[in-house]
């Protein structure tokens, strides 16, 4: 059995008297699909994590619908990766080993071994606990898209948290 997070968190919030968190529901809207025209080993791969990762020297996230984006150098030492996310309880292990949620080590190894063409020079993170879907659509999505465009990525890996 998989954990039903939406039901669990909704019930928790209800007990606490909070407004329910509204997850995005695609409904009947079919998923768009862009086929891959290259093999993964020829692709430049972009990465977006919603774990609230930032690197030392950057600002952390705030917890009131922060829709800002951080650009982290792909060669950034894992010792300089930090996290701030509204549900900090999920960050215990990522704070010890960022590769749990921000797979820099794995992707750099795959780049070296030729399993992917390359990892784009910077990877991106935002703080995924946002109550405003409008902000996601009007701020985060276009911002991520224009960054990926300027990096000329072929494919994008998204790691939601």
């Amino acid at each position: 059995m998989y954990v039903n997070y939406m039901k669990t968190i909704k019930e928790r919030y209800l007990k606490l008297g909070y407004q329910p968190y509204r997850w995005f529901h695609a409904g009947e809207d079919p998923a768009p699909f862009t086929p891959l025209y290259k093999k993964i080993e020829e692709c430049r791969l972009g990465l977006l994590s919603t774990s609230g990762a930032y690197s030392l020297g950057q600002s952390a996230y705030h917890y009131k619908d922060d829709s800002s984006l951080r650009s982290i150098e792909k060669n950034c030492s894992t010792e300089d990766i930090r996290f701030s996310h509204i549900t900090e309880n999920y960050l215990e292990n990522p704070r010890k080993d960022p590769n749990c949620i921000l797979p820099l080590g794995q992707l750099l190894r795959m780049e070296k071994e030729g399993k992917i063409g390359e990892l784009a020079d910077q990877v991106f993170s935002c703080m995924g606990g946002i109550y405003s879907q409008r902000k996601v659509l009007e701020d985060i999505a276009p911002n991520v898209y224009s960054r990926f465009l300027s990096q000329e990525v072929d494919v994008a890996l998204l790691v939601p948290m």
Partner: peptide, 20 residues
Amino acid sequence: VARYLEERGIPTLCLGSAHD
């Protein structure tokens, strides 16, 4: 975000741990 990128021509993959 994945749907937004895909609609604009960037193939995406979401790797997540919340099935629902």
